[in-house]
Simulated assay, not measured.
Amino acid sequence: MITLKSEREISQMKEAGDFLASIHIGLRDIIKSGIDMWDIEEYVRKRCKEENYLPLQIGVEGEIMDYPYATCCSLNNEVAHAFPRHKVLKDGDLIKVDMVLGKASSNIDVSKLDFNNVELMKKYTESFRGAIADSCWAYAVGDVSNQVKRLMDVTKESMYIGIEQARVGNRIGDIGAAIQEYVESKGYQVVRDLVGHGVGPTMHEKPDVPAYGIKGRGVRLREGMVLTIEPMVNTGTYKLKEDRKTGWGFSTLDGGLSCQYEHQFVITKDGPVILTSQGQEGTY
């Protein structure tokens, strides 16, 4: 079922989106050559405890294991859902940091929760219904190649091109078709197996929002829909391989680079309004 959000719900999601955006802004100063990737996870956990936000990815059910971390940290050829881990980042790396956060109710003290206890966290995250924010951002580590810079630029621009199509009366296919046409015109491929989605009252709601498609097809867009657009763009094939040990991480089948950007937004009568903005749109 597709739900249309009230002004109150949108306002609450905007508050959550501002907080998530502030984390991504903070990560700009943290992510640099020589840091341990785990520092990213620690920073997000610290911010959540300080501001009473639940990291909603902890405890998401998987076929092999439930997701155990507050962030997904996907490096270079990793596409999405890779685990944060102890690995030193180096000049030239491309890392994508994805997270979903929810503003906890006043009767939950997030600062006292043990984020390492996945079963305990799942009791809170699985039942969460409230103000949710979801955003992924890509970061260049130190001095990166022109190949990495171009991939990042094309991926970010494709996200904004897709968001621009999210207008009342258009269809889901208009979003995906615009993204796909732009990405492929630049010589890249968009991932098919992982897609954007509706948000609220839980983190993954209908409709699915692919970064590929056919113009004029799919669900018609309406005022009050809250969606994510999250193109994953590969330098080579769009096909993926899955981490069979955990059932979570995806990487490119051919070992090529992959980049992702994601914003959450609401469709209004005047056009899309981004809820996870980090500043001047088109830049952040």
Rank of each mutant, 00 (worst) to 15 (best):
L120E: 15
K46R: 15
I163H: 04
R45Y: 02
D109K: 14
A138R: 01
S145D: 10
L101G: 00
I2C: 10
L240M: 08
Y139K: 01
S106M: 08
Y238L: 03
L94H: 00
V118Y: 05
S135H: 05
Y53L: 10
L113S: 00
L120A: 15
G279W: 01
V141N: 02
I10V: 14
Y69G: 01
G17R: 03
A140T: 01
A131Y: 04
T252A: 14
T155S: 12
A211Q: 08
S6F: 09
V219H: 05
I161A: 08
V219W: 03
S158I: 09
Y43R: 12
T268D: 04
P68K: 07
M65I: 14
D270E: 15
R28E: 14
K149L: 09
I31G: 01
Q278R: 11
I175N: 05
D153R: 13
G216E: 09
Y284F: 14
V226M: 12
A131F: 07
W38P: 01
P210A: 09
R217M: 14
V79L: 04
R220W: 07
Q260A: 13
V154E: 02
D134E: 12
Y53I: 08
P55M: 04
E119H: 12
K239I: 06
G218M: 11
F250Y: 15
G169Y: 01
V118C: 06
I172G: 09
F83N: 14
G130Y: 04
G130T: 09
E181M: 12
S145W: 05
I175K: 02
I163V: 15
T202W: 00
G279N: 06
L151W: 04
P68W: 06
G213V: 06
S22P: 11
V219N: 02
R167K: 15
Y69F: 14
S22M: 11
G169A: 01
C73R: 04
